[in-house]
Simulated scan of single mutants.
Amino acid sequence: MDVWSDCAAWSRRLLAAAELLSGYRHLRHRRYEDWWVHPDSADAVVRTLLALGIHSLVLDAMAQGRSYTPELIGRLRPADIGNAVTKRPDHELLAGLPALDEADRLRVDVVRILTYDPASALTAVRLRALAHGALHGLGKSVSAEDPVCEDVAGMPR
């Protein structure tokens, strides 16, 4: 099974679900304008950050003896993904990655540059906060008491 591909697919689904939240798309693009960041490249970084957060939580679950299935991601809490993206040390988010195709490797390299280049640190923090905010908004948008990814982004497709 390709864990990374599943994590990347869920990151796209979560960001697409956030697009449906009232005002989120406008707010996100307004912030991109204020930060002088192109929406397409910023969205790619946000999706990559989400995928890295999901991937780190999947690796944690596997280290605790749980078998990986794609359904495992659907049972992750968006709040936990948001915390992974914003609170985990960078090296933990970037650890344990499999061999990536060229496109994914380039996106992860952008995250590395934003993370470790002092001139880009503010942009990295802002994009991480934006990813966290999307997940927080998604969690609040459903009636589930303790929502999981399947609750906020629908059942696996």
Rank of each mutant, 00 (worst) to 15 (best):
T115V: 09
P118C: 06
H132Y: 12
T69C: 05
I81D: 14
R25N: 09
A42T: 01
L100I: 03
P39A: 08
H55V: 01
G53N: 06
G53A: 03
D90Q: 07
A121H: 10
H26Y: 08
A42V: 00
D109G: 12
T123W: 07
T115N: 13
H38K: 07
A131F: 02
H26T: 12
Y116S: 00
S67A: 12
P70D: 06
D40S: 12
A95W: 15
V110C: 00
S22P: 11
V85T: 05
R128H: 05
L114P: 02
D117N: 12
R88I: 02
A119L: 08
A119T: 01
S120A: 15
P89Q: 15
A121L: 09
P89H: 15
A103M: 07
R66Y: 06
V111I: 01
P118Q: 09
W35R: 12
A119E: 12
R31T: 06
V85R: 12
L57M: 08
A61D: 12
L94A: 00
A99I: 03
V110D: 00
Y24T: 03
G96S: 04
A95H: 15
A121Q: 12
A124R: 13
P70S: 09
E33F: 07
W36L: 07
T123N: 12
A121T: 05
D34L: 00
G53D: 04
V46Y: 11
S22A: 14
L21I: 02
W35T: 02
I113P: 00
D90N: 09
M62Y: 13
T86M: 11
V46N: 14
R128D: 09
R47C: 07
H29F: 08
L114S: 02
P39D: 10
H29A: 04
E102K: 00
D60G: 03
Q64S: 12
R28M: 05
R128Y: 03
T86E: 11
G53M: 04
D60E: 13
S41G: 08
A131K: 03
R126I: 01
T115R: 10
V37D: 15
L122E: 13
P89M: 14
